[in-house]
Design a protein around this nucleic acid. Structure first.
Lengths: 219, 219
DNA sequence: GTTCAGAACTGGACCGTCCAGTTCTGTGTG
DNA sequence: CACACAGAACTGGACGGTCCAGTTCTGAAC
């Protein structure tokens, strides 16, 4: 037993098996996002991925396992997308403009129909899959605020911000920027996702408040 | 049309029919909150309310209708609870303390297991019941911020706050106060609902930032 | 001869309906 | 006030039709 050698199936492969697996994952992602966990049936996933149900169950032991795999992958992927290129503030750069850009990067990634739907999906399944929600929290808001806290601590050390507790400042910044559009899109649907211009205005207003509270001497 | 005379069935009655109807609503609330829309079956509701399924369908035409009735009622009820006694700021009262109390009232109502679960439920069903989510948005955050905007406009008129756009200030205040605990409880479950002491600290920190940005001359 | 598609199948869950028999409620009558 | 009675509401159970997760079988392709 256990004579399998192709253990690289879950990273990136181009064998037939890996291709099918990818097709299943893609199809399942779409269907789960559209219909929710209970609202999704495996036949639809098999049909959409152009694969027999037998093949689906060869790759994933159950509906639950497939769901966990997909949601886990999406949250981690999205989290990585946000925090890839964290530009630092240059010496001659404007602090407010820098913070606005920082905010906009976050907003434009999170306020995407797919990511919003993922959020709704996970929130709706908190009871059934608490672990998934915890992962989303860690890889999402918690991670973002941890990164922010580091940035703020640095800026405070350079005398550009007057911050007592970087973690709290990061929370305040994060939610000043994200909450309004996030909650709106969450409940009013994807059509309520603000345009980039609106997001910019929102970010600027948030940064203004943030700097009023945490902006150091150079006001 | 509308020749019905006994329209008082949905307010408060004590007849047998009204009692059963209430029992059904109570049971259905519990089951829906616990298992979600698709995860709930009508047999369980009938059993828990100690009523035959026939009676359930005599009062509510379908599972969907029952669900809409319950969620609608709960959102409206919770919204009213928050905005019942809106005390105004007295002449000799401390502004910061007043705002902290204002925030705490909101927090302690919203951060309840039942209300949190309702939020999760509605968010998870945005696609299936967009109207319900819209109602929750209107009766929840939108209403709260509208009330806040009125309060802030008044305070600004009295020279206690320096506010340009009351609506934006209300948004900032609302989310400075609510976002951190709300998001945490939303994803990490009811066990992550902060204690009242933590909520107070959170409110105080939020008010501090708010007043730094919007506090008028009397700083 | 291994893998997969296609299709059928199992076992079970569930919505909504139906029905025969029972209980409640309100109204009229002596 | 006691009683009878009609109509509405309710029970308990059964059932049709549908849906679905997961398994199994057959035939074909490579």
């Amino acid at each position: 037993m256990g004579s399998e050698v192709n253990e690289h199936a879950d990273v990136e492969g181009d064998g037939r098996s890996a291709r099918k697996r990818r097709a299943i994952l893609d199809a399942a992602t779409e269907v789960f996002l559209k219909s929710g966990y209970l609202g999704t049936n495996m036949d639809e996933i098999a049909a959409l991925s152009a694969v027999s149900k037998q093949t689906v169950y060869k790759h994933f032991s159950s509906k639950e396992a497939l769901f966990v795999e997909i949601v886990g992958g999406m949250t981690t992927g999205a989290g990585d997308t946000v925090h890839n290129d964290v530009a630092q503030l240059g010496p001659d750069e404007d602090l407010a403009a820098y913070l606005v850009e920082y905010a906009l990067r976050q907003l434009t990634v999170v306020l995407t129909p797919r990511i919003m739907q993922l959020r709704r999906l996970v929130i709706g399944e908190v009871t059934r899959f608490p672990e998934l929600a915890r992962v989303l929290y860690e890889r999402g808001p918690a991670r973002a605020m941890k990164m922010l806290a580091v940035v703020f601590k640095d800026l405070a050390g350079r005398g550009l911000l007057d911050i007592d507790d970087p973690a709290i400042a990061a929370e305040h910044f994060n939610w000043l920027i994200m909450s309004a559009p996030l909650n709106q899109a969450m409940l009013l649907g994807d059509d309520a996702i603000p345009s980039e211009a609106e997001l910019r205005r929102n970010a600027e207003a948030g940064v203004r408040v943030f700097l009023a509270a945490y902006g150091g001497l150079g006001r």
